[in-house]
Design a protein around this nucleic acid. Structure first.
Length: 501
RNA sequence: GGUUUCCUGGCCGAGUGGUUAGGCACAGCUCUGCAAAAGCUGCUACAGCGGUUCGAAUCCGCUGGAAACCUCCA
């Protein structure tokens, strides 16, 4: 456990950054609302889960034992026409509902793997926790905070507000009176005692396919219940962190909190974290209104919004250049900038790891360069400690990168930096880039082929010979031919290197 | 209509009551057979108008603009 850290996290409940204090020393329990698997994962989902991946990774880095729970929603959400989403998708495709869920679950996992996110500790499915949800409905009924109406069960919001004041509205910052004033045309309004009430169990209609037996009717659980039931089951009644996208604050998270209170009179999570939206054309990306670019379109370049393909790691890096609580606008120009920045950082790290550490002629004193580098390392940690500010981390790494290049180019003598400081910088780079930011080096994957490596060495060796003989025609032909197939030759001071574009 | 958030240099994007974020682009230079690559240097902004303050881009107010939520959504 790294005792020196002073991690602060922005808590939606208080609207402030708070020092993180785990409930159980050395352990972190974190629940994040997962995807609904009735469609391909879209980039917005990816951003949220990349953001929480960083949080997950940093807790691990700090030495916490983390239980990270992220659910798969494979049932229970209604569409505008009142039909269960999963059922709708399955009817269109003539597939079993669970077949649809399985297909998109696998696709989601593949996308998470491509983006190099660590898997959660537990990934519970809503359909696998129907008994737990029924039990929770019963508890809420027993506590008098819900009522049955025509086979469905509704959460009694006004009663809850009266009995446990100050809770409802605390996540979304909504005022109760405003909520009550929003008398809209909603579904099943006639069954509800109050417009603000919401279903925790829905009686099925003939067209609903995914249904279960319950004490009240054959039906399915309410839209927010799964997270309440599953977080309680795996993390306890009160746990450290609950996260999700900004757009889930209301009604999803608000109702979730109400359900937990309604069941056990206790607050589910101490800290609520919300990630901000990914923007396209300066608007929220959204499946429903078509303002979207899919991950695969981004990776293949097959989109009207981009000029070329971007690798998953470039996309991940792009996301990390912004803070998770800020909106992030996707533009081709910004992606291009991220791609260059990513490649440069990777190359800088290669350069750094290959710098010789030479303690022999070091005089033992700590100089201004050492202090500057140590201060930058500290900045990187402070960035993470300040509500996971990855943008600050990247800035610090880039600043250190300037030193790396100066050393590599001998603009600074090799012994300008204390050996132990250089060692520490090497370790810091590796730790931050690969462990905490979770980046992978695309170049490793591309060049990790002995045949290619051998051929390139041969070709570049021939070019070097031609150059020694001032046979520019031959050397330029080799260079241009390689460029034509996307390989860039880089003539450096200490020899030739190459990279795939 | 209600609630909330945001408005930073050519672009993206951090941060802060007084001192260079960083990246990309651009310009100059170094290196180089030429080019590319790489490095160095430069480019110093904070929507507008008021107020608080010794001092505000940072706090407060107003105006303008944008977005999110209020309906499934990460």
């Amino acid at each position: 456990m790294n005792e020196s850290r002073n991690l602060k996290i922005y808590n939606t409940l208080s609207g402030k950054k708070e020092k993180f204090e785990p409930i159980v020393e050395g352990h972190v329990g974190m629940y994040v609302c997962g995807p609904t698997v009735y469609n391909d994962a879209h980039l917005g989902n990816c951003r949220t889960y990349v953001s929480f991946d960083i949080i997950h990774r940093y807790f691990i880095h700090l030495g916490y034992k983390v239980r990270y729970v992220r659910n798969i929603t494979d049932v229970g959400h209604l569409t505008d026409d009142g039909e269960d989403r999963m059922a709708k998708g399955s009817k269109l495709a003539q597939l079993e509902p669970m077949e649809v869920a399985q297909k998109y679950t696998l696709g989601f996992h593949e996308m998470m793997r491509i983006l190099n996110t660590l898997p959660p500790s537990i990934e519970p499915r809503a359909t696998g926790h129907i008994p737990e949800q029924i039990e929770m409905v019963q508890q809420i009924l027993d506590n008098g905070l819900a009522y049955e109406s025509n086979g469905s069960v509704y959460f009694n919001v006004p009663k809850f507000v009266a009995e446990q004041p100050g809770v409802y509205g605390s996540v979304s910052g909504r005022v109760i009176d405003d909520l009550y004033a929003e008398t809209r045309e909603l579904k099943n309004q006639d069954e509800k005692a109050h417009p603000a009430d919401f279903a925790i169990w829905m009686k099925a209609r003939p067209q609903d396919l995914m249904v279960w037996n319950s004490p009240w009717s054959v039906g399915f659980p309410g839209w927010h219940l799964e997270c309440s039931a599953m977080s309680t089951k795996y993390l306890g009644k009160t746990f450290d962190i609950h996260g999700g996208g900004n757009d889930l604050k209301f009604p999803h998270h608000e109702n979730e909190v109400a359900q937990n209170h309604g069941a056990c009179s206790c607050s589910p999570a101490r800290v609520w974290m919300h990630t901000n939206m990914l923007l396209l054309n300066n608007k929220k990306m959204s499946k429903s209104d078509g303002n979207t670019i899919s991950p695969s379109e981004l990776f293949s370049g097959d989109s009207p919004h981009t000029s070329k393909a971007y690798s998953p790691m470039v996309v991940r890096f792009f996301m990390l250049m912004a803070h998770y609580r800020s909106t992030l606008d996707i533009t081709d120009e910004a992606l291009l900038a991220a791609e260059k920045g990513y490649k440069k950082l990777m190359e800088t790290n290669e350069l750094l790891q290959n710098l010789p550490v030479n303690p022999a002629n070091f005089d033992g004193s700590e100089n201004e360069h050492d202090r500057a580098i140590l201060s930058m390392i500290d900045d990187a940690y402070q960035g993470m400690d300040d509500d996971f500010n990855t943008a600050m981390v990247i800035a610090s790494l880039n600043e250190m990168g300037s030193y790396v290049h100066k050393l590599a180019n001998q603009q600074l003598p090799a012994d300008a930096i204390a050996p132990w400081v250089l060692d520490k910088m090497k370790a810091t780079f590796n730790t931050f880039i690969f462990e905490i930011l979770g980046l992978q080096n695309d170049a490793d994957a591309a060049g990790n082929n002995q045949v290619v490596e051998g051929l390139m060495n041969l070709v570049l060796d021939m070019r070097s010979q031609a150059r020694t003989q001032k046979d520019w025609a031959t050397s330029d032909k080799i260079r241009d031919a390689l460029a034509a197939i996307g390989i860039q030759v880089k003539d450096g001071k200490d020899g030739v290197s190459w990279s795939k574009q």
